[in-house]
Design a protein around this nucleic acid. Structure first.
Lengths: 183, 183
DNA sequence: TATAACATGTAACTAGTTACATGATTGG
DNA sequence: CCAATCATGTAACTAGTTACATGTTATA
């Protein structure tokens, strides 16, 4: 699906592999991510399939920037993919839950330490999402009114992050309390 | 990590690949799953590494059951894995969010249909988790008191499922309402 | 003086999915 | 009679990760 994600970003504007990585990290990072190396190999495949074309922009003292542009064929597959409904919930893999599931024989403190460590991480993550974005939507709407709806959906995805982190922390607090009592 | 999950289950008792699949689906299914084929190939690797041993139990009119047992070496790696803390939050991939993120140019009804479809799925999923388990913990504690703590952690994992589905549905309702107003 | 940002990519690997192949028994 | 359950596995594939390789410029 990374293919479709890259096409999605390139639909807005042509970008290099390097820029795509940054854009992803800043926007879809919390629900879709990829390593730089995978982005480069996927772009190569997309170009073989003629869903994107690239041209090299020479630079002094740096490797050429290879800028990718979506083609009509690419636009078509993107459109088809967007219209094809998601028909099953994502099966997420949660390492922490897996480990916890098998941790019944561990010492109380080992479990609590683990849970508190993860709690800190989620606390931090939570803060990242809380930058207010109604403003941001107003700004986009003022500058690029054609992106108004896009901006609302971007914010919906951000909201998911906010609610997810809140839920996660609530669950951790409840679980920490339970371990405290039962172990 | 499937390796560790399989070792975790085999620690409780020897099982076949087929049984491991069923056990996973019923217990860790919502945060860790695997296809039957992957389970078989992973068991083979675990046996090469001497972390499990297997023996064939002949059966009439069916393939032999190949029952896997965890070895001492396997127990050791399991233990090490359990003690090694998880130091970063899971990066989950959410196909629905990815698609939604790029759906700004879709028709209002296409988006709403998609969101409602997913809402149904999560509604169903949600019901699966809501079977009360305080009873179940009491039962385990009565029959196998040595598993009492395990049972509490299994229930914590289930609780995560409950809270996750609730959060997801809340977010969907909020997003559906937003699309209704803004599109 | 070191490290982050810029900028590209390949090779080897691990993980996971899909499709195939086989075949009896049980329940609706 | 058809589908589900039991029960094993392989082959080919896609997806994703880790490690390597190169080299400049700006900033702290």
């Amino acid at each position: 699906m990374l293919k479709c994600a890259l096409l999605g970003f390139l639909k807005y504007q042509p970008k290099t592999g390097y820029e795509l990585k940054q854009t992803m990290d800043q926007s879809t990072g919390h629900f879709w991510h990829a390593k730089q190396s995978q982005i480069y190999t996927t772009l190569k495949k997309l170009e073989q399939d003629k869903f994107v074309i690239s041209h090299a922009e020479p630079q002094e003292s740096r490797p050429d920037r290879r800028v990718y542009t979506i083609t009509e064929a690419g636009d078509k597959v993107l459109q088809e993919w967007l219209l094809e409904p998601v028909t099953k919930p994502d099966t997420t893999k949660q390492l922490l839950l897996l480990k916890l599931f098998f941790s019944g024989k561990l010492e109380k403190e080992a479990i609590l330490t683990q849970l508190r460590l993860i709690r800190n991480l989620h606390e931090q993550q939570s803060k990242l999402y809380k930058t207010s974005t109604p403003d941001f939507i107003d700004e986009i709407t003022a500058l690029q009114p054609e992106l108004k709806q896009d901006a609302h959906l971007w914010d919906a995805a951000r909201r998911f992050g906010v609610l997810y982190e809140k839920m996660y922390i609530d669950w951790l607090d409840e679980t920490i309390a339970m371990v405290d009592v039962e172990f």
